[in-house]
C-alpha cells in the first residue's frame, strides 16, 4: 500500500472567520482483521488506517481515530474555521506505520 491515492477538496476562496467544509478521500483497503482467506481459512491480519489528522498552518484542528468499522477507501468530511491563508495538511497513518499525506492551499480574503 505504498501508493495510496488521496484527494482533498476545499473551497477556492474563503472569507476570514468563515466555516468551510473539507472533504477527504484516500484509497486504502482497510483490512478489518475479521475476514478469512477463503483458501486457507486463516484470518487476514488487520491493516487499517487508524489515525487521521488535519493541521491548519501547523496547528491540529481536527483529528480522528479509526477502527475496523470504517469502510474501505475511507471518506471523511469535516469543518474548519478560516483564519489566515496557508495550507491544510492531512495525514493518514496505518497499522503498518505507513504515513500518507496530502495538502490543500487555503486562500483567505
Amino acid at each position: 500500500m505504498a501508493k495510496a491515492k488521496a484527494r482533498v477538496k476545499v473551497p477556492k476562496k474563503v472569507k476570514k472567520g468563515e466555516v468551510f467544509e473539507v472533504k477527504t478521500l484516500i484509497s486504502h483497503k482497510m483490512e478489518s482483521g475479521q475476514r478469512k482467506d477463503k483458501k486457507t481459512g486463516k484470518k487476514i491480519p488487520r491493516l487499517i488506517i487508524n489515525k487521521f489528522a488535519c493541521s491548519y498552518n501547523g496547528k491540529d484542528v481536527f483529528t480522528s481515530d479509526w477502527y475496523p468499522a470504517i469502510s474501505a477507501n475511507p471518506y471523511t468530511a469535516f469543518y474548519v474555521k478560516a483564519d489566515a491563508s496557508g495550507s491544510l495538511d492531512m495525514t493518514w497513518t496505518d497499522d503498518s506505520g505507513a504515513v500518507f499525506k496530502k495538502s490543500a492551499k487555503i486562500k483567505v480574503s
Binding site: 491548519y56 483529528t63 481515530d65 470504517i70 471518506y75 469543518y79 474555521k81
Partner: peptide, 26 residues
C-alpha cells in the same frame, strides 16, 4: 458489530462546527 468502536473524532475551537461524516461497515 464484532467490535463496537467505529471512530473517535477530536474537535477544536478552530473546527468551527462539530460536524463530520464518514462511511462505516455494519
Amino acid at each position: 458489530n464484532p467490535e463496537p468502536d467505529v471512530a473517535v473524532f477530536h474537535f477544536t475551537p478552530s473546527s468551527g462546527r462539530a460536524k463530520a461524516s464518514t462511511r462505516m461497515r455494519m
